[in-house]
């Protein structure tokens, strides 16, 4: 994967997308094999320092939006004034200006997902992992999130977004990796994948004919 591209991880429910993202994020251990970054195998702890995962069901600490966003920065030793400035920019990038004071858990589902995204942006991870970030959101919230994701492109961050939404993958993905039953069945540039899939499984998936 390269730092200036958005990689869409496609697959039906249960294909293994979330499992793969959790392994890359250093939250779960693989049954076999290793995750390599810059050609070097990385331990779980090392992966957690370079990768940040935004969960499908956004998780929030029972604190203010400010505290939720500042948590990762405080761990990294950032000062209050720096946190405040970066936090404002991050919230602005997801359309939640002046949300700092609110209780994170009392915001709507769409707002929580945007807060989670802003929290991940703040850490400027080398690998940003997004697990179906727009699932169950209204079109407006989904569009804001997609715009925010696109705004992070070309910032030396590898962005991997898992989705089963083909149009979304086509819209924002530069590369597509198709997973089925825990195996990568095809990996190709987005246009090539959708126009001329090489694998029969991928073709069936695009045409909506794939049995689970």
């Amino acid at each position: 994967m390269q730092g200036d591209k958005i990689v869409a991880l496609l697959g039906v429910n249960g294909a293994g997308k979330t499992t793969l993202l959790r392994i890359i994020a250093g939250l779960d251990k693989p049954d076999k094999g290793t995750i390599q970054f810059n050609d070097k195998p990385k331990s779980d702890a090392e992966l957690r320092q370079i990768a940040t995962l935004v969960f499908q069901r956004s998780a929030m600490f029972n604190r203010s939006v400010y505290d939720n966003l500042a948590y990762g920065l405080k761990i990294r030793g950032a000062k209050d004034t720096e946190i405040k400035q970066r936090l404002s920019e991050a919230l602005c990038s997801v359309g939640l200006t002046d949300f700092e004071k609110r209780k994170a858990k009392k915001t709507s589902g769409g707002e929580q997902q945007r807060i989670a995204l802003a929290r991940a942006f703040l850490l400027e991870p080398k690998i940003l992992l997004l697990d179906e970030p727009t699932a169950n959101l209204d079109p407006n919230s989904a569009a804001i999130i997609e715009r925010a994701i696109l705004s992070r492109k070309n910032k030396n961050t590898i962005i991997v977004i898992s989705t089963h939404n083909l149009t979304q993958a086509k819209r924002i993905g530069d590369e597509v990796i198709h997973i089925h039953a825990g195996e990568i069945v095809e990996s190709a540039p987005s246009a090539e994948f959708f126009d001329n899939p090489k694998s029969e499984v991928s073709r069936k998936f695009i045409d909506g004919e794939l049995d689970f």
């Binding site: 959790r22 994020a25 250093g26 939250l27 957690r48 320092q49 990768a51 940040t52 995962l53 969960f55 069901r57 998780a59 929030m60 600490f61 029972n62 948590y71 990762g72 761990i75 990294r76 929290r119 850490l123």
Partner: peptide, 26 residues
């Protein structure tokens, strides 16, 4: 406590001890 809190703290870079403190605070 929500298992996601553990995952959240870890993916935001918290060490094992900080993760436990985050869970205890919650």
């Amino acid at each position: 406590s929500d298992t996601q809190i553990r995952d959240l703290a870890r993916t935001l870079g918290a060490s094992g001890m900080r993760t436990n403190l985050a869970i205890m605070r919650e």
